[in-house]
Simulated scan of single mutants.
Amino acid sequence: MTAASTPKERVLAAALQEFAEHGVAGARIDRIARAARTSKERVYAYFRSKEELHAAVASDQLQQVMDSTSLDPADIPGYVGALFDFYVAHPEMLRLVSWGRLEPGGELTATDASGHRSLQAKLAVIAQGQADGILDDAFEPIDVLMLLVNLSMGWLMAVEMHRFEDVDDPDVLARRRAAAVLAAERLFPPRPAARPSAD
């Protein structure tokens, strides 16, 4: 949090750390308020409940992912690499996702119109790439996006595998990133754009 951040921005930043560390059930508004240098009353003035605050944090994080990565149907491996880099730089995002999978109502979803539009835009790009013959249409667009997201975050979230390799070692991260990108390339090899018929 920077000195120039607003009280609401500080609350969201503190809430992200709190939810990432403790999940929805274990998160405490008083800790969030202290970390944000404000009062519980101010937090509740912005968000009526802990669940509403979590929804705002989750939506904000999803929006950041959508805005920080560009999906080009002609460069699917590049998209997976960019997502991998984003998750490495934002480990709290992965913890938020992990908690969401454990807790009812804790899912990381787009709860506002902008988040929904960003997701729909990614799916539309995939569908257009398939229509143009650039991208294999064997999968539905939503399945393509799901596969790419899971390739990008799979190893980072598979904590049981981290005992075999140091997740903080740059060389290990580089190899795991290369593996995810290669898998995306094998699943969705680049195709030349279809040319119109001369007839």
Rank of each mutant, 00 (worst) to 15 (best):
S5V: 04
T6Q: 07
R10E: 03
A15S: 11
L16E: 10
F19M: 05
H22T: 09
H22D: 09
V24I: 12
A27G: 07
R28L: 13
R28D: 14
D30K: 15
R31T: 15
I32T: 09
R34G: 06
T38H: 03
K40L: 04
E41I: 05
Y44K: 04
Y44I: 05
Y46N: 09
F47M: 11
E52I: 14
H54G: 05
H54P: 00
V57A: 03
A58M: 03
S59E: 07
M66H: 15
D67R: 10
S68K: 06
S68G: 13
P73V: 05
G78T: 09
V80F: 04
V80E: 00
F84S: 01
D85E: 12
H90K: 14
M93K: 11
M93W: 15
M93R: 14
W99N: 00
G100K: 10
L102M: 13
E103F: 09
G106S: 11
L108S: 11
T109Y: 10
A110E: 04
D112N: 15
G115M: 03
S118Q: 15
L119I: 06
L123T: 15
V125F: 01
A127M: 03
A127I: 07
Q128V: 01
G129L: 02
D132N: 11
L135V: 03
D137K: 07
A138I: 04
M146A: 14
M146K: 06
L148D: 03
V149D: 11
G154L: 03
L156F: 09
A158K: 12
E160Q: 13
M161T: 08
F164P: 01
E165C: 03
V167W: 02
D168L: 10
D169I: 04
D169F: 02
V172H: 04
R176I: 07
R176F: 05
A179K: 07
A179I: 02
A179D: 03
E185T: 02
A194H: 12
R195G: 04
D199T: 11
